[in-house]
Design a protein around this nucleic acid. Structure first.
Lengths: 121, 121, 121, 121
DNA sequence: GTGGTCTAGACCACA
DNA sequence: GTGGTCTAGACCACA
């Protein structure tokens, strides 16, 4: 389920959960799996999930209620902002990558429009 | 200099060299650094570079002449094809990534055009 | 209601009751809650309250009359002395704490006067 | 070396180190003990120190250089601000405590001035 | 050598 | 049941 990057597992899980929230697979107010269940899910140690949850809470993306459970924040705008940031990062990474291959901005835009047309046809 | 992926180092080096050729930092006919120098350059074992060169030669991107050196292929169209393939991979990866964040094709195209406009302004 | 110290619970309850007597929430001669009710109040075992009452009686702060109830001592001066002792402990703890943070006596006195001025403004 | 509070050990260690920095036992730029040595010092697991260091770094109080060591920040003003905050917390806690014992602001200020006079005599 | 991550597993705190 | 902390110990990354 996790990618092949060298990033720490807990960061990869954070990003995976963020994507699920950004894309609506997890909605504001939804209960997250308990730490132990999520650990089974990702096949990692509960401590690793614990760390992911803590970081997400610190970022205001989820709220943790001791003894109760962890929940996606009710704050819609926080989720939207997070989604936008994920998009920006992907966008900038893409332009950097294409640029390093030797494509200029005009070519990049052209190729994306072509691809978009094909995908929507 | 190398990325943060878990890919074998020789693969990462292949991709780096390919980008240099695609972007014109290395031109058709150019002599590549000798294996030992390239190894120092990337701070890896010469065997690793050896393997990267072998793969690149198998793909027809470079030619290796024993006792003389290694050279970027003279075949312009081979380089162009390779550049196109690198671009396709980046393009598809980008669409996949944006899609997993929850953006649809229309939104992706819009964001790229916006970004392209800003970068060219 | 109880603090975050590792002190035994019966000690924490003693100190809480002492504060109530020192601050006049419980006056000389007042009847204390029966052991069982006080236990419900603090959400502890009645035995724990029993022990707290015993200690307070030994200190002459309350009097326990079997079959009748427990009462705050009539001895005003005993309560005053106890209040003074609580104040001394807090005062000394405060000077120690500030000292360990790196403030000298002059600075501590200055800060308290400033704060006092603000609070009384 | 650590207090008897119910606070997590890593928090207690953070506060202890903060006090050492506030009071000048540790100065800006000073090297902190390596994680493992500090763990022996406090007789806790290295992971616990790791966590303390990470929190301190996040707060900008120390800087961590992977493979090199951990250092008190060079930013004098950050240390001063932290010292001020520690003082404020102690001050407010003291006023709260005295208030719960039944002393009013005027009395608190009087007692502190008396004590300050005695200590400086 | 020094910090960073992770697992396995125990035990605690809160509800 | 659910999250929080801690230990013991392994292994990795960077210098």
């Amino acid at each position: 389920m996790l990618s092949d990057s060298k990033q720490p597992i807990y960061i990869q899980i954070i990003n995976d959960l963020k994507k699920q929230m950004a894309s609506g697979k997890l909605c504001p107010g939804d209960k997250l799996l308990p730490v132990r269940d999520m650990a089974l899910n990702y096949k990692v140690n509960p401590n690793t999930i614990q760390r992911s949850y803590q970081e997400l809470e610190r970022d205001g993306i989820i709220t943790v209620q001791r003894g109760v459970g962890s929940f996606v924040t009710d704050d819609d705008s926080a989720i939207k902002e997070m989604k936008y940031q994920l998009g920006r990062i992907a966008l900038e990474h893409f332009f950097d990558e294409m640029s390093s291959i030797g494509y200029n901005v005009k070519e990049i835009v052209y190729m994306v429009n072509e691809e978009g047309g094909k995908l929507n046809a």
